[in-house]
Amino acid sequence: MAKSEREFSSVTAVGWTSVPGSACPGLDERVLASDGPIATRILRFAAGTDTSPNGVQVHDFWEEVYILTGSITDLRLEQTFTEGDYACRPPGMPHGPWRSPDGCTTFEVRYRDSRSR
């Protein structure tokens, strides 16, 4: 199934839900469009969220992330990223775990590259 067609609408029409499979409280998502793990979403880290229980993340799809507000610290890299920072991760790239002392909201797009199938 492909992502559903959708014309402009308020993202607030989509509610926040806990991230499935996450062992971390305070990690919520607003899924705007999806096709399994391939999704466009807004991800929200509540103040104090620590994703260490989820470990380092690695997946088989591309992921682009733009930080809208706040900051997150990659505990593995010991580096903090803030509002306006952007990441583009190819399949297999390790990232996280994350900590967000003051909270963070990101915009994320996940997709597969048809050339790498």
Rank of each mutant, 00 (worst) to 15 (best):
T105C: 12
A46I: 02
P101A: 12
P25V: 07
A13Q: 13
L68M: 10
A87E: 06
H95M: 11
F8I: 15
G84C: 12
V56G: 07
F45Q: 01
R76A: 15
F8K: 11
C88Y: 13
E64C: 06
S10G: 10
D74R: 10
S22A: 11
F81T: 03
T106K: 03
L75Y: 10
T80F: 11
Q79P: 02
V19S: 05
S18E: 12
F61T: 00
T106Q: 09
D28L: 14
D74A: 08
V31K: 03
P101I: 04
R89W: 14
P101V: 04
E29L: 05
R99G: 02
R6S: 14
H95R: 15
G36E: 08
D74L: 09
S52Y: 04
S22W: 09
F8L: 15
T73W: 01
L27D: 06
R117N: 10
Q79M: 14
R76G: 08
G36D: 07
R117D: 11
R41H: 06
I38Q: 07
G70P: 01
E29M: 06
A47R: 00
D74T: 06
R115D: 11
C104V: 07
A47P: 00
M1P: 05
A13K: 12
A13R: 09
N54C: 07
V65E: 00
R30L: 01
E108Y: 01
F61D: 02
L77G: 05
A87R: 09
I67C: 01
L32E: 02
I72T: 08
P53D: 02
R117Q: 10
Y111E: 02
S9F: 11
H59E: 05
A39I: 07
Y66A: 04
V11Y: 11
E7H: 13
W16I: 01
T51G: 06
S22T: 14
W16K: 08
P101C: 09
M1C: 08
G55F: 03
Y66D: 03
E7I: 12
G48N: 04
V109C: 08
L68E: 08
I38V: 13
S9R: 14
Q57A: 12
T106G: 02
S52C: 04
T49P: 00
F45A: 01
H59W: 04
R41S: 10
A46N: 02
T80P: 05
P94L: 15
R89V: 11
E64P: 00
G84D: 13
S10Y: 09
W62C: 03
Q79S: 13
S18N: 12
G48H: 03
S34M: 03
V109Y: 06
P91H: 14
S71M: 09
R6H: 11
R76Q: 13
Y86R: 10
S9Y: 09
N54S: 06
G55L: 06
R41V: 08
T51F: 05
G70Y: 01
V58D: 05
S114G: 07
R89M: 14
I67M: 02
W16N: 05
L27M: 14
V109G: 00
G70A: 06
D60T: 10
V31Y: 00
R110T: 10
L32H: 02
S10K: 09
T105H: 11
L32F: 03
